[in-house]
Design a protein around this nucleic acid. Structure first.
Length: 823
RNA sequence: GCGAAAGUGGUGAAAUUGGCAUACACGCUAGACUUAGGAUCUAGUGGAGCAAUCCAUGGGGGUUCGAGUCCCCCCUUUCGCACCA
């Protein structure tokens, strides 16, 4: 009979749900396993194959662990705040709340068809006040500790859309994603979280978690630690000082000019009257470039002199001060000491503007008088550096720092590329920032007992560039919590990455009202043991949550200081070479395939396509392969209906007491058990399925020659092996075969019988001088002599040995015999 | 430019440690059963050659009895980061 997937998938999904098979008992934390996939943004585009590729295999892994005896918690929820819903509202007039609720309903329906073990009692959505209340609480805690603060900062601004854009909405060429006009930088007062305070701990923690090396490397690069010195340059005829950061204090004697970022606050003050016109033009010009444009290496460097001179603290020499947009205000001190002799960028700039190049590090193997034709950035001996002459540059770094510290002109300093996290958005559909601005008392936190600050439903969606909340008087006008006078709420909302930086805690007690989460549970159930999601979050979500988690640890609310013990990235499924996205119109939806083949076949196919962490371009070409495979298993079960009712399970068989067909199957089965254990644990689903296919083929061929007791043994184990990969199929076949109880209510895993893993004979590869000339079947553990004799007497091999002298034999037991002959 | 990953049949891909390259599938070819086949089953299927054999893991060197796997150089693709002083 054709495998009736429609009926049975519904039947088992209903059964699992009604019997609460996947409900987690938090009281039992023995062998607890928190298995998590990144929650979904409920967009109108709904679930596509990429989502399935994330959730299906992740669920198979969790199911495998459940069968092995782990107490698995696998929750799901919705990352429900965010820009797309609001943009949709601007276009269509549908309120973000309404569209989001509808999308969540739709997606939930789609999700249920996968047949996952989600414990829906953990379900949450970030847009509900009972969730975002705790975002606000978190904000206030950070505020209290000085880790949330407001400052003026440059942001992306589209003059045509009249709004702030997230970095992700600015295309690589510096234009607006929506209207293609140029995006400029504009200074606005914004809220930040001080993630930089945690930079060192964020680096340290990476050494203690089981994450892909590529992701750890990305985070390390993103944090971008570099050590060097901060050096003070006095300014001639001024009481101002210019501070620079450098990783090469050993090149201090080679400084020939200073570069400041055009937006540097000292620029106005230090610019002389003669230069002011040129400087003003330059500053204005660079404001129209995006950071992306400014920092693109293809652009030629440019700059102007501001007329001031700085004094080199080591030499007393005066050097000109320039502004140039290759200096970034956001890194280091925003000022650079330029050493054209030993820095490529400074060299390029000095060439263009005809500035002096001083050689202070001697490249090994070159002479002092050799002229530099390019910057030498390596190590060497210090020259032209006063009392430091002759010192190796690596040592010189330390010596110069010592000199700076003693003379008060600077100090050793560590710098990070990581910037503070800008969390305010001039948007409606997010968590309101719980701050009240009072003209008299200034910035006032909303008292905790007044949380949540609820997002009003009635609101005007117009892309005005201001938060829509600002034009909602009932929301905006409040009394100051301190003086009771009239005051205004902060009109901004939080970045949705705040929501996702602690949601895994909340899953354990989504309805908890006495705090962010029930620590009695999270103390035992957090951290997440397995986290599966895409690479695109390597430096965003995955860094933010590590930061927030460490903060929770500092508050005493988390027992560990890392949120995700083990991390795996599934590969990206592309379509026609491009990542699936609604705007590209290349989304592949799963429904047609589930309708045609069923959920298990589709899940199997996704896992069978290739290595899980690799992904690839979508094609449904091979799906019939997994369809046939499922049908063969179903046929086998039907042909042996009731078997397990009539024949009890035998734990193991003695190989010497079963017939050859049974023996072959027995060995195959137990080898398959071992392979599948290794493969699924390591998310190598494709080879696990291949192994199951092999086992199934062997069963189809040989099962009729087996005793009923033996059949019962193999079917019982085969069901358990396929259960994580095709859960509906396994339950149904179990029922057909007359198995006692359902699989997932009574999880069990069978260990491989080690005795069955050893073959009695092995196929030796016989090589002559490294070339394969034949194979011979030998009893296991044969000696070199025995194999050699057998090889010599085999005509296929002996003909290569005629009149040849064997000068060496290489023998690898149970594998290979290589006879090296004289050429 | 820097960093990471990858390159194996017509296609998706296997190959825990240096030890029989191409498992498992898709597709294709032939046959069987069929009114029929986009069903099922059986056999075959890296390339060249009648054959013995030879050649094949992006290209070129090397180490080794033996290299898809280790080392060096180069090419291509994908993804990150992109003047970070």
């Amino acid at each position: 009979m054709k495998y009736p997937f429609e009926e049975i998938e519904l039947k088992w999904q209903k059964y699992w749900e009604e019997n609460q098979v996947y409900k987690t008992d938090f009281k039992n934390d023995l062998r607890k396993l928190f298995s998590l996939v990144m929650f979904i943004y409920p967009s109108g585009a709904k679930l596509h194959c990429g989502h399935w590729y994330n959730y299906g295999p992740a669920d198979s892994w969790s199911r495998f662990r459940k069968l092995r005896g782990d107490n698995v918690f696998e929750p799901f929820g919705f990352d429900a705040f965010g820009l797309p819903a609001e943009n949709f509202a601007i276009k269509s007039g549908v309120h973000p709340y309404d569209s989001t609720m509808k999308n969540i309903e739709d997606i939930k329906g789609q999700l249920k068809r996968i047949g996952t073990m989600y414990d829906w009692s953990g379900e949450l959505m970030t847009c509900s006040p009972e969730y975002y209340k705790w975002n606000q609480w978190l904000f206030l805690k950070l505020y209290e500790k000085g880790l949330a603060y407001r400052k003026n900062a440059p942001v992306n601004w589209c003059e045509s859309c009249n709004t702030v854009l997230a970095n992700e909405q600015v295309l690589a060429d510096g234009t607006c994603e929506r209207c293609s006009s140029i995006v400029i930088q504009k200074n606005l007062t914004q809220w930040f979280f001080k993630i930089t305070e945690y930079a060192e701990r964020l680096l340290d923690g990476l050494d203690r978690i089981n994450w892909p090396e590529e992701t750890k490397t990305k985070q390390r690069n993103w944090i971008g630690k570099s050590t060097g010195a901060e050096i003070i340059f006095k300014v001639e005829n001024s009481d101002s000082e210019i501070k620079v950061f450098t990783t090469r204090p050993d090149t201090l004697f080679g400084v020939t000019y200073i570069v400041m970022a055009p937006e540097h606050p000292l620029v106005d003050k230090l610019t002389t009257a003669e230069c002011s016109q040129k400087v003003k033009e330059y500053v204005q010009n660079s404001a129209y470039l995006t950071e992306i444009e400014r920092t693109s290496q293809t652009k030629e460097k440019s700059g102007v002199e501001i007329g001031a001179f700085a004094i080199n603290p080591a030499t007393g020499e005066k050097v000109p001060v320039w502004i140039a947009d290759y200096a970034l205000l956001s890194y280091g001190t925003g000022c650079v000491m330029a050493v054209p002799g030993h820095d490529e960028r400074d060299f390029e700039f000095a060439q263009k503007y005809k500035m002096e190049v001083k050689k202070v590090i001697l490249q090994p193997g070159t002479g002092e008088s050799d002229v530099l034709t390019e910057a030498y950035t390596g190590e060497g001996t210090m020259i032209n550096s006063g009392k430091f002459n002759g010192i190796r540059s690596t040592q010189g770094i330390l010596e110069v720092i010592k000199f700076l510290e003693e003379s008060g002109f600077g100090k050793g300093k560590t710098n990070y590329k990581l910037r503070d996290w800008l969390i305010s958005r001039q948007r409606y559909w997010g968590t309101p920032i719980p701050i009240i601005h009072c003209e008299k008392c200034g910035e006032q936190p909303v008292p905790i007992e007044q949380l949540p600050v609820e997002l009003p439903y009635d609101i005007q969606f117009k892309p005005t560039g201001e938060s829509p909340l600002r034009s909602h008087p009932e929301f905006m006008n409040v009394k100051c919590p301190k003086c009771g006078g009239n005051a205004k709420r902060d009109p901004d909302t939080m970045d949705t990455f705040v929501d996702s930086s602690w949601y895994y805690f909340r899953y354990c007690s989504p309805k908890y009202a006495a705090g962010m989460f029930d620590e009695e549970i999270t103390d035992k159930w957090v951290p997440v043991d397995m986290y599966i999601g895409g690479r695109e979050h390597s430096t965003m979500h995955l860094l933010y949550s590590r930061f927030i988690h460490k903060f929770m640890f500092d508050l005493g609310m988390a027992k560990t200081d890392e949120p995700f013990k083990r991390l795996v990235h599934q590969g990206t499924i592309t379509n026609m070479g491009a990542k699936m996205s609604k705007s590209k119109g290349n989304i592949v939806i799963p429904e047609p395939f589930i309708d045609k083949y069923g959920s298990d076949v589709f899940r199997l196919y996704l896992m069978f396509m290739g290595p899980y962490e690799m992904g690839g371009d979508w094609s449904d070409k091979g799906i019939t392969g997994t369809e046939r495979f499922v049908q063969r298993i179903y046929d086998l079960a039907e042909a042996n209906a009731g078997l397990l009712k009539n024949y009890p399970d035998t734990e193991r068989f003695d190989i010497s007491h079963i017939n050859p067909e049974e023996k072959g199957l027995y060995t195959k089965l137990h080898k398959t058990i071992e392979k599948i254990e290794y493969d699924i644990e390591n998310l190598k689903f494709n080879t696990a399925i291949a192994a199951m296919m092999e086992l199934t083929s062997e069963m189809v061929k040989h099962i009729s020659g087996c005793s009923n007791e033996f059949k019962a043994h193999i079917f019982e184990r085969m069901l358990i092996l396929i259960a994580p990969l095709a859960p509906h199929l396994a339950e149904e076949c179990g029922e057909i075969l007359g198995r006692k109880g359902t699989i997932y209510e009574n999880p069990v895993w069978y260990e491989a019988d080690k005795n069955a893993l050893i073959d009695e004979t092995v196929n030796y590869a016989i090589q002559i001088s490294g070339k394969l000339r034949g194979t011979i079947l030998m009893p296991i553990e044969s000696t070199q002599e025995e194999v050699y004799e057998a090889a010599k007497s085999d005509p296929r091999i002996s003909k290569f040995l005629e009149e040849k002298e064997i000068i060496k034999q290489i023998f690898v037991k149970n594998k290979i015999l290589n006879l090296v002959v004289k050429p």
